[in-house]
Design a binder for these strands. Structure first.
Length: 162
DNA sequence: GCCAACGTTGGC
DNA sequence: GCCAACGTTGGC
């Protein structure tokens, strides 16, 4: 089975890539996703070891901050059952959880943040979901070709210079 | 803070 | 099942 690639958005004021690096085991559960399309990608598409592009939205500038990997199989988002939690969903049945998530582990920071503007100016990324107008989805699939281009732009995953 | 682009909700 | 109203996302 081949590895898949994803892009996941986070507002750095809420949870940044640096926060993920600082987290225990550099890992966190990706809670709070309340969009069915995004959930379906996590529930149906993700496997342990998949590559994750960590994107900072609502930032100045917005862009790619680092790279992570899927660190668990999909499982129910515990916050949906916590009445005290802002992500509580009274319509979710514990017998049949509505919201599913995965754990994410930080792997490597971008050498420098790759601004959204640079991504949009890169012809090889014309078809990338993130670059499409009105793209709001917080979890998106990324092709292997896009993954390589983005990592090169971020200065990671390439052979070290002498 | 504005607003375009979506997604969701609920009346009918 | 339609669709208007409303809420959210997220770049600018």
């Amino acid at each position: 089975m081949s590895r898949n690639y994803w892009l996941m958005k986070s507002e750095p004021d809420v949870f940044s890539f640096e926060d993920l690096v600082q987290a225990p085991n550099r890992t966190t559960l990706w809670d709070g996703v309340r969009n069915y399309q995004a959930r379906n990608f996590m529930r149906d598409g993700m496997s342990v070891g998949d590559g994750v592009v960590f994107y900072h939205s609502n930032a100045k500038p917005p862009g790619i901050a680092g790279f992570a990997e899927v660190a668990s199989e999909p499982y129910p988002d515990p916050t949906q059952f916590d009445t005290e939690h802002k992500y509580f969903d009274p319509k979710s049945d514990p017998e049949k959880p509505r919201w599913i998530l995965v754990d994410i582990r930080a792997v490597e920071a971008a050498r420098a943040l790759v601004p959204l503007q640079d991504l949009k100016e890169e012809p090889a990324l014309d078809d990338m979901a993130l670059c499409q107008k009105g793209s709001r989805l917080s979890v998106q699939p990324v092709s292997e070709a896009e993954w390589r281009v983005v990592r090169a732009m971020a200065g990671v995953g390439v052979a070290k210079k002498a």
